[in-house]
Design a protein around this nucleic acid. Structure first.
Lengths: 173, 173
DNA sequence: TTGTAATTACAGAAATAACCGTAAAAAACG
DNA sequence: CGTTTTTTACGGTTATTTCTGTAATTACAA
């Protein structure tokens, strides 16, 4: 209970965003609370601050842990399970993207390959479909290695990249 | 009705992905169907192929049009409204990202600014929160211009970027 | 106009997802 | 060990989203 206006506003917005990106609103709100909180929180803290049931909080914490966005913290002499969030946005989004890649992008590539197998000995009619599937697969096959490279760059060089690509456009344009 | 195995599989998968990224499953499936289809389709075609109600198809087509992923096509002497999808994956994902930026990223930046205003004359206690909000805002303020640059690059240079960033890491690492 | 075909709006039904409270289980102490 | 505290699992409920069918509207051709 009793969050500041700014915290309240950010938590609500982050929940809203979550729901637009396929993340449970409650999970996203809890994540936002952890992100803004200086100190680790336990399930009761979260339940009290956001007025969710303990059980709902419990499973949401699990989900956030599975995503790698929060990690457990223990205090000696306190049995409760505390958690704290990744606090650096760069690291945080890297974790999210890595996880989405693992869960969704990789299987998508696998599915595309499977579809291409299915359509391999193709009649004239399916040739167009085959072509579309191949184009999509090629897209991922370029973007995935690019992401793999970008994710390893520290933020300094990333900031310069914008300037660099502007230059590239200038040269070729 | 009577889609090929590959089409069926891809449509189902795309719907699955949609639901994980905050897009209505039906809308995503219809989009997939358009993507794979050589010829423009009308609402009846879609309803027949995927066994959705006409009205459901109608509103889904609208939504896809709002996203800019399909566009209307007319055939002389045929009153029906046909649509066709963007067929180039590069262009397609660019449209999706642009739209998500407009709908979600820009408002997020605005919200962050608003939160920072709220927390401006801050007590000691809120100082940490303020810091977190600022860090998040800074992240977006670097990534948005970078995206703006990348989205304007044709795919050739993008393919080389991966190699380039590998080089950068090599030099600084 | 008038009739016909296509589209859209809407309200209720169906399906899905989210949430809570309780009870069982597990873990941490003495 | 037994006790206490914390965590998890589960069944039922509520809420939300999705989907459908019908009715109203619009666009078009004769």
């Amino acid at each position: 209970m009793d969050l500041t206006v700014a915290t309240e506003k950010f938590v609500a917005w982050w929940g809203e965003m979550g729901s637009k990106w396929g993340v449970n609103r409650t999970v996203a709100e809890i994540h936002a609370l952890f992100y803004l909180s200086r100190d680790p929180l336990n399930a009761d803290d979260v339940a009290a601050h956001l007025s969710f049931s303990r059980s709902n909080v419990s499973s949401s914490l699990h989900e956030l842990e599975n995503w790698g966005l929060i990690s457990p913290v223990h205090f000696r002499g306190d049995r409760k399970q505390y958690y704290e969030a990744i606090k650096d946005p760069w690291e945080m989004f890297r974790v999210i993207l890595d996880e989405r890649r693992r869960r969704e992008i990789n299987p998508t590539v696998a599915t595309l390959r499977a579809c291409l197998e299915d359509v391999a000995g193709s009649t004239q009619e399916d040739l167009y479909t085959q072509e579309r599937l191949r184009a999509m697969l090629e897209f991922f096959e370029v973007m995935i290695p690019l992401y793999d490279e970008l994710r390893r760059l520290p933020r300094g060089p990333i900031q310069n990249l914008a300037r660099l690509t502007a230059k590239i456009r200038e040269v070729i344009g």
